[in-house]
Amino acid sequence: MERDKNFVLGVFDDEDVLLDAIAKVRGNGVKIHEVYSPFPVHGIDDVLGYKRSKLPIAAFLFGLLGTTLALTMQFYMMKFDWPMIIGGKDHAAFPDFIPVTFELTVLLAAFGMCGVFFVSSNLKPWAQPRIFDLRITDDKHVVAIDLATNAGLGEEKIGDILKSSGASEVNKKSFE
């Protein structure tokens, strides 16, 4: 059977039932493809075994880049390229450079991190998402289980595990 094509979906109404169910399903040796929710469910990363996002590191590095660029630009322009005495201050009036440095640090950190977020999550205006169930963005949580990666268990067995752990519906979904 080909991967990423045929799925069994467990539909859940309640986030706390969902969290317990994910643990139970995984405990039964079922590999979960992904869980889809209408809102962020706290603690879902832990039960799914997801690692912490590295986006804060990206933000920090982009922020560092912003600081460096801002200071380089200001020192180059004010001290080396066209030195001018303004208000009797030193050409390289470091305290005066702090506001712009701070702003550019924030700007690059925010934009850099959001850029990484869009790219890593494949978010773009022309993206064609695979929608497992239209109610995911309304009121249902959906646990998607790929049949190919759980070949040893079979569709019925997976359905039974989902039902017994509290799924309100068990559906099948296939993509071309």
Partner: peptide
């Protein structure tokens, strides 16, 4: 932007 509500994306979103 092709949002699908995946737990991984929600985790990054948060």
């Amino acid at each position: 932007f092709g949002w699908d509500g995946a737990a991984k994306t929600w985790s990054r979103y948060e």
